[in-house]
Every structure is written in structure tokens, then in C-alpha cells.
Amino acid sequence: MARIDVRKTYKLYIGGAFPRSESGHSYEVADSKGRFVANAALASRKDVRDAVVAARKAASGWAGRTAYNRGQILYRIAEVMEDRRPQFEEAVRQSEGITAAAARSQVDAAIDRLVWYAGWADKLAQVIGNANPVAGPFFNHTAPEPTGVVGVLAPQSSSLLGLVSVVAPVIVTGNVAVVVSSYDRPLPAVTFSEVLATSDVPGGVVNILTGDAVVLGPWLAAHMDVNAIDLAGVAGDAELATSLEVAAADNLKRVRRAPETEPDWTNDPGLSPMTGFVEHKTVWHPIGI
């Protein structure tokens, strides 16, 4: 007799814990052919609220880590992902309806991207910061700092590489993230959250909500304790993107605008995914005896 497998419950990831949605709701996740795969927790606005609280709580601790330490932790995420490759490959294949080989290459790229960003942790300040030769007896320098809590609407198509490509730059720069996963393809994000939970990432630094960016986006965009928002997940929906940008203006969030269509995430990201979420702080001090 065939063994009945033990299924996983796909939950939210908030503050380092895996709760169900506060609303009690879940939704059916199908594979690319429309076959039922699992029920995912359907995050509500109150889950957004809780995730922002958890993120804020984690923010100063994460920003206070040394850049070296953050780099180590990002690299650790890559290591643990590597360890769970088969699971990621299967999840990506199933979600995106691509071949096993294509899924493998997506997972490769996602892990490699984390490694790439891990290395940036202790270099970005050197590349985009500077000493300023002011015309007076003052030491003056400018260095990037995290902007704080970043709302991330993860891409809808690229369930893992896209997700990693928007989350890694946020956290490597010392920010904390409240992420809304792809609605139709949430399962790689849930598995990714399990990786985060076992990769020395402090609870609350990344919070992942499975649910609908159309529903949750406005709550994140309008939240007055969110400092920035990445609208990648509403690419192509200009009307929604505009309304989110308008809402984001309520507390002048830094906005990474939604592209017209979802980009090819295998392209070189450049620095802008990181620089969009840092603040340049300039410090002056007199030079004297």
C-alpha cells in the first residue's frame, strides 16, 4: 500500500514565526495547469499591520549589525537554499510551469543573486559614500544608511528569482521588509521563508505574506510606519501603481516604481535596487586641537 504523504501547511512568516492569517482565510494555490497544490494563508490587512510592527521591532537591531555580519547572514541564506535545491526546483517548476531544467536555472540564479548581494553588504558604503572636502576646518563624510521598513510587492511571475531579487537588496542594506508574495505562485516564497527562519536572519527582518498585492498593496502603501515601497508586484497595472504611489505620498515613502512589464530578473540588477532604499547621511565635525 502506497504511503500517504504528510502535507505541509503553508503559512505566513511574521516576526520569525509562522502564523496562519489573522483572518483565518486561506486560498487555493494551483499549479500552472490549474491543479490544486495546496491552501496558502490569505494575508489580510491586519496581517500587514502585524508584519509592520514585527519589522519595526527588528529594524534597529538589524541596522545595527555590522555590514560584515549582514553579509555573512545573506550568504548563509544562500547556503541553506542550496541545501534545499530540490524543493525549490520543484516549487518553481510547479508554480511557473517551466521545465525542470529551466526551474533549476532559476534556482541557480536566485542563489547566485543572494551570494552577489551578500558581498555588497560591506562594499556599498565604500562605493556610494564619500568624504566631502568642505571649505572649512571640518571632517565631513556621507554614507548610506537603511531607510527603515520597506514594503515589497514581490513580482507576480518570477516566484523565486524575482522574489530574491527584490528582498535581498532591501535587507543587505540594513532595511527590514514586509513582503507580499506572488499571489498565484506563493509557494516558493513560503519555502523561502522557511529558509530565512533557519539562516540566522533575525525574526522580523523579513516578513512574508502570501496574498493579493491588489488588496494588501494599498494598506502597505498608506501605512505611516512604512518608509519605502517597491511596487514590482503590480508591474503592468498602471492605474493601481499610480494609486499606490499616491497613497505612498502620505508619508513620503521612497517608491521604487512599478515597471510597465515584469523585467527579466536574470539581468544584472545594478545598484539601484539597493540605492533606492538607503538614506545618505552626512556628518560634520570640527577639526581642532
Binding site: 572649512g136 576646518p137 571640518f138 570640527p286 577639526i287 581642532g288 586641537i289
Partner: peptide, 11 residues
């Protein structure tokens, strides 16, 4: 224990 004097500020 007297307050310090910042050179640049004093000048």
C-alpha cells in the same frame, strides 16, 4: 572638569 573649548567654534 571645566568645560572644554572647541577650537573651531571658538575661532
Amino acid at each position: 572638569g571645566l568645560p572644554g573649548v572647541d577650537q573651531v567654534g571658538a575661532e
